[in-house]
Amino acid sequence: MCPVAIPKSDRTIDCQDLIYPGPILEAEKTLGTMTIGQVLEVITTDANTRPDLKTWAKRLNAEIVAITDETGGQYSFFVRKVAGAAAQPETSEKQDDERLFLIMLKTGFEYTPIVRSAFMYASLAAAMGFDTVVYCVQAGADTMVKSKIEELDQSTPGQPTILQRFSEARTMDVRVEVCEQTANVRGIGAEDLMEGVTLKGGAVLIDYAARAAGQLTF
């Protein structure tokens, strides 16, 4: 693998003592004092900052120039201040805000009826024509791990299982996403997830919530 080319920076801030979202917040404040075209280097040790850099930069109409490899847990990202109006983050394939419906799932296997309900309502929203996304955080992320979904599902015999409700939702083109920061904390990798489930940074959830025509939390 070729080493990352290190760009010349106009300013550098050290955020090694800050945890997510601290490095992003400090970078945003510093960029506000810089001129168009200047490059800011942010030194950090927080792995949870990395997944949100692209979404954050697009919101500011900034450009991520480079992200270095980690050395001893430390890495840097370089962001350039760009002219023009702020761009919209690339968070979904569809951008019709009036038809976006958000379901946030934070409940895990400790109460499977709630998990099943989340996917049932997701299927219903999709059937009503909404571009529907189920975004999983906290214990909800565990329910999308393929090695756990059948083993830990406590559904009563004769009732639909989580897997059945999940499959119904996917058939209806419901997008299912897991918070990447949650996944990092819980030791969940992309390869551990059910087929069709993707990892998305936490900033994506904020964007969904701001744009959604409706939302439910389970």
Rank of each mutant, 00 (worst) to 15 (best):
L102N: 08
T33I: 11
F77A: 00
T44N: 10
T45K: 13
G84P: 06
L60Q: 09
P21W: 05
L25R: 13
N61H: 15
F101E: 08
F130T: 00
G84I: 06
L100Y: 07
T91S: 13
L53S: 01
P23G: 05
L53K: 00
D46C: 13
M120Y: 12
S76I: 00
D52L: 04
S123Q: 04
M120F: 14
E98C: 13
D69M: 06
A47N: 12
F101M: 08
D46G: 04
I36S: 09
G37I: 07
E93W: 14
R50I: 10
A85L: 11
D131H: 07
L53P: 00
E28V: 12
G37K: 03
K29R: 15
K58I: 12
G108L: 06
T55K: 02
A125Q: 10
W56T: 04
V82R: 15
A125W: 03
A86Y: 11
A127C: 09
A87K: 15
D97F: 11
K58M: 14
D52I: 04
G22S: 03
A47P: 10
T30M: 10
D97S: 11
P89C: 03
L60A: 11
P113N: 01
G22M: 02
Y20V: 06
S76R: 07
N48W: 01
L124M: 15
S92M: 09
D52N: 10
F101V: 05
R99P: 08
R59P: 01
F119K: 04
P51A: 08
T49Y: 05
T91K: 06
A127N: 12
A127F: 02
A83P: 15
I114N: 08
R59L: 06
I67W: 04
M34F: 06
L31C: 04
V115E: 07
A86I: 14
I64W: 12
G32Q: 02
Y111V: 01
G108W: 03
E90M: 13
I103T: 11
L124S: 12
A87T: 15
I24W: 02
L102M: 12
D46E: 15
T107R: 09
L18A: 14
F101T: 01
G73W: 04
I19R: 13
E110Y: 12
D52Y: 01
A62K: 00
T30Y: 02
